[in-house]
C-alpha cells in the first residue's frame, strides 16, 4: 500500500514536471515570442506623455511663454522649482512682473506633473529624456529659460 502511494506520487511529480518543461521547450523553439529589448543599442520610442524632466518651451525667436506668476512653484510639493522674478517698467509707467531666471532642481523632482497642470500659460512641459545620470550632483540643478530669451508677444 505504501509502495503504491510512493510510486503514484513519483509518477505525479514527473508528469507535472514534464508539463512545465513542455512550456519551457515551447519558448525555446519559438524565439519570436521573446520580448527582451536590447536597451543601449536599440532605444524605445517613448510616448509623448512620458515624464522625464521639466523643460521650458522656446520658439525659434528665443521667446518663452513664462510670465513669472509662480503658480508652478506653489504647486510643487518638494520645492523643486524656484522662479526668480523682476519688475519691468512698461512704456505707460506701470510696473510689470517678468521672469528673471527659472531654476529647476531635477534631483528633488518626483515627476508628479503638478507644476505642468498648474501652469496657466503652458510655458513648461515634460520632456521624454530619462538618462539623467551625472558625476556631479550640481549638474542636476538647471536653468530652464535660455539666456537672452524674452516673453512671447500676447502671453498674459
Amino acid at each position: 500500500m505504501f509502495l503504491a502511494d510512493y510510486i503514484k506520487s513519483v509518477y505525479n511529480g514527473v508528469t507535472s514536471l514534464l508539463k512545465g518543461m513542455r512550456m519551457t521547450g515551447y519558448y525555446f523553439v519559438h524565439p519570436k515570442e521573446i520580448i527582451t529589448q536590447q536597451y543601449p543599442e536599440v532605444k524605445q520610442v517613448l510616448p509623448e506623455r512620458f515624464r522625464g524632466e521639466v523643460v521650458m518651451t522656446h520658439n525659434e525667436n528665443n521667446e518663452h511663454r513664462c510670465t513669472g506668476c509662480t503658480a508652478c512653484e506653489l504647486a510643487c510639493p518638494n520645492a523643486t522649482i524656484k522662479v526668480v522674478t523682476r519688475f519691468d517698467i512698461t512704456p505707460d509707467g506701470k510696473k510689470k512682473k517678468a521672469l528673471e531666471t527659472f531654476v529647476y532642481h531635477l534631483e528633488l523632482c518626483t515627476l508628479c506633473n503638478l507644476c505642468i497642470a498648474a501652469c496657466p500659460t503652458d510655458a513648461i512641459r515634460m520632456a521624454q529624456t530619462f538618462e539623467h545620470s551625472v558625476y556631479d550632483r550640481k549638474l542636476l540643478t538647471k536653468r530652464l529659460d535660455k539666456p537672452g530669451s524674452k516673453l512671447m508677444e500676447g502671453v498674459e
Binding site: 506623455r49 508628479c112 506633473n113 497642470a117
Partner: peptide
C-alpha cells in the same frame, strides 16, 4: 499606463475631481 498617465509605477493620475488627463 505609461502612454496615458506618463509614468509606469507612481502615476499620480488621480486628482480631486477626476483624473489628470
Amino acid at each position: 499606463m505609461e502612454e496615458t498617465c506618463g509614468t509606469r509605477l507612481t502615476m499620480n493620475y488621480m486628482v480631486p475631481g477626476g483624473v489628470m488627463a
